[in-house]
Design a binder for these strands. Structure first.
Lengths: 141, 141
DNA sequence: ATAAGTGCAAATCGTTTGCGTAGGC
DNA sequence: GCCTACGCAAACGATTTGCACTTAT
């Protein structure tokens, strides 16, 4: 399914002079299999362990790190808990409900008017968001 | 200087049935003395220790917690490090520069157009921001 | 063959908790 | 005197690091 995405990522790894090991492959596959869902390092670890029992948590973190450096995966902070990871796609922000914790993705385009005022009034160039935006979702209101 | 603010807070504590202890007073004073600056628990701890050597870190955290429950102080996450605290003032968000780490406060009003679209298009009611907004500041661009 | 990547255990950082005691009310 | 808040030590969750060994290149 998302094999193409994984293969492309492996290509990028090779091109960047990194080695393609089986833990690395498995971790990449685990993240990709999330299909856009946000996965904690723990969940990725769990998924990997189903096929490679002796892969260590430290290896998961180290790999998520190098994958992030290449821009292949991203991590975000949705709340007070652990960080969450997913394959890099297009620019989007995360609306996290303060009541139920649900996460809604919204395209970063939505922030255009704000982006403009930030630039004009504060000289601040909005980047891709690393942290969640909090509020109350439709279901809870 | 900010004695009035501290006294008012102490009043609120009393009114809420909390006791006014000297560690509590010192912690409150330390946060208020930040005068809007964001202080880490560690910094507050340090400030308190200058006058009350045996106040423990746990006490700092416990107090910041109760003060937050009363809405007297707020904490925010500006980056990957520790949380930061300040006296509650009016609704504002934090623009954190990805390069130099500088923090710019902006009134939450700036988000009005976005707030509207969030509500209309996603049924999501934007709350007071708990996490920083990242980007690049004027100085670094 | 060489150095990047790994497993493991132990360390780190920020924060929380259980417990017995001290001190505000 | 009662009960909240305290000091202390120890536990905690998430992540990182040092080191000896494996393995892709």
């Amino acid at each position: 399914v998302d094999d193409a995405q994984v293969e492309a990522a492996i290509e990028r790894l090779r091109a960047a002079g990194h080695r393609v090991t089986s833990p690395r492959r498995a971790i990449l596959k685990a993240v990709a299999s999330g299909r856009g869902r946000h996965l904690t390092a723990e969940e990725i670890f769990g998924a990997v362990q189903r096929t490679q029992t002796d892969v260590h948590m430290a290896t998961v973190y180290r790999n998520l790190d190098t994958l992030a450096e290449l821009g292949l995966v991203e991590h975000t902070h949705l709340g007070h808990g652990p960080a969450v990871f997913r394959m890099t796609t297009d620019a989007h922000d995360h609306l996290v409900c303060e009541r139920c914790g649900s996460v809604t993705d919204v395209p970063s385009k939505l922030f255009r008017p704000v982006r403009r005022r930030m630039r004009d009034d504060y000289g601040f160039e909005l980047g891709s968001q690393h942290f969640a935006i909090t509020g109350v979702c439709a279901g809870c209101a």
